[in-house]
């Protein structure tokens, strides 16, 4: 009996050791950063691991346009920048749960994106510091390290460099939060970033063009992305709360309409695919006002 138990324990230990001794899986590492093709030479010679599952699956990824993308298209419409519309950087120092910090990170991240796009470099740098504080609170402070902050300061006069640095940093933050099992927090960052972006976009509606109002109406599609993204994490109470808080905004966007859909076409030109057709979205004044009211209420509630 004792011998059988010992054999069983030894076998279990041996299996564990064998598993641990298997080398890295088929992701490999490449030394080249300029080669567009995956480095095959390193990967071909590196040991690869047998899959831990045999049943195939379909992985669904969810994403939304980043606040930087939205800020850029809004700036192109000639909308002016007003620093008074941004959240105060002191939001980064408020006490709270991780979910509160994630929401603040999204809000301030969107403000940082806007300031960067509008070349308000000193404003951008102060928001970068605030974002750094919050990332430290969330345990992902290694992303916004002193080296990155230093590069942003050195390149402060170069809008494109600052924009690239900020975008890359937010990608790294998203990746890091997911890697440590905080996908729900990454979802809150995305959601609150969108909320702040739409809030800022609705500050300058007076006298705006029809095209600008169309941009607001099109945010209905981005809201679909955001809701889809956060609903995949709805086991989290904070996410559940965010979904509930977004419902008035969802309701307000129900007033957005679209005309007859033109046939979607895809034509190749100069190495790119041009996709024509699709729906033209429209929001009347009442709908624009409803969206503005709903997003203002939500955003101000998050900032409190």
């Amino acid at each position: 009996m004792i011998i059988h138990k010992q054999i069983r324990q030894t076998l279990t230990f041996a299996i564990a050791l064998a598993t641990l001794s298997v080398v890295s899986i088929g992701c490999g590492e490449s030394d080249s950063t300029n080669n567009h093709d995956v480095e095959n030479s390193d990967l071909a010679t590196s040991k690869t691991e047998a899959a831990k599952r045999t049943k195939t699956l379909k992985k669904i990824f969810r994403a939304a346009p980043s606040p930087m993308e939205t800020a850029r298209i809004i700036q192109k419409e000639g909308v002016s920048f007003n620093p008074e519309n941004l959240c105060g950087v002191e939001l980064a120092s408020k006490d709270g749960l991780s979910s509160d910090h994630a929401i603040s990170l999204g809000l301030l991240g969107a403000d940082l994106s806007y300031a960067s796009i509008y070349r308000k470099n000193s404003v951008a740098l102060s928001y970068l510091e605030a974002v750094k504080t919050l990332s430290q609170e969330l345990g992902v402070g290694s992303v916004l390290n002193n080296e990155l902050i230093g590069r942003a300061e050195t390149n402060r006069a170069n809008r494109d460099s600052v924009v690239m640095l900020v975008s890359s940093a937010f990608y790294d933050l998203n990746e890091k939060l997911k890697s440590v099992g905080h996908e729900d927090l990454s979802g809150l960052v995305v959601a609150s970033g969108w909320i702040e972006g739409l809030y800022l976009a609705t500050r300058e509606l007076e006298g705006s063009s029809d095209n600008y109002k169309k941009l607001i109406a099109e945010q209905k599609l981005i809201l679909v992305d955001v809701m889809s993204l956060i609903e995949s994490y709805k086991e989290s109470p904070a996410i559940e709360d965010m979904i509930n808080q977004l419902q008035p905004v969802v309701t307000a966007f129900e007033g957005v309409t679209y005309g007859e859909s033109a046939e979607i076409t895809a034509k190749k030109k100069d190495g790119a695919i041009y996709i024509g057709g699709g729906k033209e979205y429209f929001a009347d004044e009442n709908t624009i006002q409803a969206i503005t009211t709903a997003i203002t209420t939500l955003r101000n509630n998050l900032v409190k």
């Binding site: 899986i25 992701c27 899959a51 599952r53 045999t54 195939t56 699956l57 379909k58 992985k59 669904i60 990824f61 969810r62 994403a63 939304a64 346009p65 980043s66 930087m68 993308e69 939205t70 850029r72 298209i73 924009v163 690239m164 975008s167 890359s168 937010f170 990608y171 933050l173 998203n174 990746e175 997911k178 990454s186 995305v190 099109e218 599609l221 981005i222 679909v224 992305d225 889809s228 790119a272 699709g278």
Partner: peptide, 29 residues
């Protein structure tokens, strides 16, 4: 190209599928 801030990567095996749905802004490359 300016990087979108969503990390979408997974470990897959032969036969697996993946899908990403997203809104793309008009007039943007």
């Amino acid at each position: 190209y300016l990087q979108n801030d969503n990390y979408n990567a997974a470990i897959l095996i032969p036969g697996d599928e993946a899908e990403l749905d997203m809104a793309f802004y008009g007039g943007v490359s």
